[in-house]
Design a protein around this nucleic acid. Structure first.
Lengths: 276, 276
DNA sequence: GCAAAAGTGTTAATCGTACACCCATGC
DNA sequence: GCATGGGTGTACGATTAACACTTTTGC
C-alpha cells in the first residue's frame, strides 16, 4: 500500500481519509437498497410502462489495478454465468442519463467518464434464452409474453473509473459484483463477450486519440503508473524517458509533489491532469 | 465529362454502359414504387407491430461530386424543411439490415459502405413536433396517441456512396430527394443538423484511421481525385507528390490503366482499391 | 558508498515536408 | 517545341526512438 507523506503527520490524515471513504461507501450501499425503482423483482416485472420497450443499455466498466485492466461483472443468481451491468431506459430520461444511473447503482460513483461506443441490434441476439433462464430461477410462474422476453436492442457504453473509489454492488438479479481481468473473463451471458471485446477495441482506439487514460487512475499518479496503464491496455511497451517526454509535451499534466514510498530510490513525482 | 479510352472503340463501350445504367436505374425506381412495405401512409399508420417501438434509424449518406462533399436529403411534403433518410427497425431484421434497407430504398444501391456512429437518445429530442406537423399535412384526423408520436431513440448511420451511381428517390412522405453540399445545408427537421454534424466529425476521424475514402469514389480513380476528396473532407491541402507517396506506401492501391482526358498533358494513372 | 529507481541529456533513425526535376500529351 | 499537368527523386527539418548519464533515496 502506497502512503502519501506530506509531512510526518500526513500518514494520519490519509488513514483518516480511507476510513471516511469506507464509511461513506457503506452508507451509500445501504441507501441504494432502499431506492424505489426496480429494487426487486416485483418492480422489475410490473413497471413495463416506465421504460422504452425493447431497448437496453449495457455498460463495460473498466478499472485499472495491479497492472491489469479489469472489467466489472455481475454474477447472475443461481446461474453459472456473469453479465455486464445493464438496465433499461426510462421514458423520461435520456440514454446517457440511463447509463449514468446504472453506473452509479453498481459503482457508487457519479461524475464518471462515459461514452457510447456501439449498438448491438442483430435480429437474433441471444437475449431471450438468458432472460428465460433468469426467470426460471426467480419467477418460474411468469407468463411467456413478458416484456423482458422480447427482442432487445442494446446500446453499449464504456466507462473509465478509478478502481480504488469503486464499491462494487450487485443488483437484485445478481449475487455478487466483481472485477475481472479483461484477459481472463469468465463465461458471459448474452452477447456480452462480444460487447466487452468491442468496448476494448474502442478504448484502445480512443487512448491515443483523446487521452482518456487518466480517468482510470486516481487524481494524482506517477508517470510510471500512467505508462504501465498505457502499456497494459495497448499491449506494447515504451521507453520510460520517451513516454514521459511525449506525455509532458502535450501540456496536459502538471507536476504536483513527490511520492515517498519508502523504497531505497529516488521518489517519483506525482502528476495531475490539468482540468483546464 | 471524363471518358475512358481503352482503344479507339472504347468510347462506344463506355457510352453504352452509361445508357444501360440509366435504364436499369429507371427500372429499379419504378420497381420500388410497387414494394409492399410502407409504400404509403396507410401502411405507415397501421403497421405499428411490424417495428420495434420508439426506435428509429437515420442515415447520413455522403457523396462526393464537383469537389464537394454532399449529403442526400429529403424534402418533406408541404413543409419547408428537409430531413435525413430514415426509418424504423422491423422486428425481424437487425439494425444494420434496417439501415441497409433504408439506404437501398433511397439510393437504389446495395453493397454500400455503412457504419453506425452514434445513438441520439436525449429525453427531449424534437421529434414529436415535427411528426405532428407531418401528420397535419397528411392525416389531420389521426389520433394523438399514434405510435410515431412517442419519444424516439435514433441510431445514426453514415454511408459512403459513389455519387455517380445513385438515383435519389423520395419516399412517400417527401416530395423530392436531393444532394446538398455539407457546407450549405438547408433548414433541417428534427435534430438532423446535429446528427449530420456528428456524422461529419466521425467521417473525418475515420478517414485517416481506416482509409474509407475510396467508397466515395468510383471503382477506379486518379490520385488527384483521391487527394481532392481528402482535402475537401479534412479541409486541408496536401502536396501532390507527398500525398501520392503516403497513399501508395500503405499498399492498398493498385495501379490500373491510364486515363486519357484529351487534355494536353501527361495522362494520369487510374487506381483501384485492393480488395484483398 | 551502493543499489535501485527516477529524471535528464544527447545522438541516431525515421518520418513528413518542401523543392527541384523529369515525363507524357495535344496543339 | 512548348505549355500543361502528372510522376519521381532528393534534401532539409521535425519528430521519434535508442542510448548514456546524472540525481535522489534508504540501508
Amino acid at each position: 500500500m502506497i502512503i502519501l507523506l506530506l509531512s510526518h503527520y500526513g500518514t494520519i490524515v490519509i488513514t483518516f481519509k480511507i476510513l471516511t471513504k469506507f464509511f461513506s461507501n457503506f452508507a451509500r450501499a445501504t441507501a441504494y437498497q432502499c431506492m424505489p425503482i426496480m429494487k426487486d423483482l416485483n418492480d422489475f416485472f410490473s413497471v413495463k410502462d416506465r421504460y422504452i420497450p425493447q431497448l437496453s443499455v449495457d455498460c463495460v466498466i473498466f478499472g485499472f489495478h495491479d497492472q491489469q485492466l479489469k472489467v466489472l461483472l455481475l454474477k447472475l443468481k443461481n446461474l453459472d454465468v456473469w453479465a455486464l451491468p445493464g438496465g433499461y431506459v426510462e421514458q423520461i430520461e435520456g440514454i446517457d442519463e440511463a447509463a449514468r444511473r446504472i453506473l452509479e447503482e453498481r459503482t457508487g460513483l457519479t461524475d464518471i467518464y462515459l461514452e457510447q461506443f456501439r449498438v448491438f441490434g442483430a435480429a437474433h441476439r441471444p437475449t431471450k434464452e438468458f432472460i428465460q433462464k433468469i426467470m426460471e430461477v426467480h419467477r418460474p410462474e411468469a407468463k411467456n409474453d413478458l416484456w423482458v422476453l422480447q427482442r432487445f436492442v442494446s446500446i453499449g457504453y464504456y466507462a473509465l473509473v478509478d478502481f480504488s473509489k469503486v464499491t462494487p454492488m450487485p443488483d437484485f438479479l445478481s449475487e455478487s459484483c466483481e472485477w475481472f481481468e479483461v484477459k481472463q473473463l469468465p463465461k458471459l451471458a448474452f452477447d456480452h463477450s462480444e460487447i466487452t471485446q468491442k468496448a476494448l477495441e474502442t478504448l484502445r482506439l480512443m487512448l491515443d486519440y483523446k487521452l482518456v487514460g487518466f480517468n482510470l487512475l486516481a487524481e494524482t499518479f506517477t508517470m510510471i503508473e500512467l505508462q504501465s496503464l498505457y502499456e497494459t491496455i495497448l499491449e506494447t511497451s515504451f521507453r520510460r524517458n520517451n513516454f514521459q517526454r511525449k506525455m509532458l509535451s502535450m501540456n496536459i499534466l502538471e507536476r504536483v509533489e513527490k511520492l515517498y514510498t519508502g523504497a531505497a530510490n529516488k521518489a517519483p513525482y506525482l502528476y495531475r491532469f490539468k482540468s483546464k
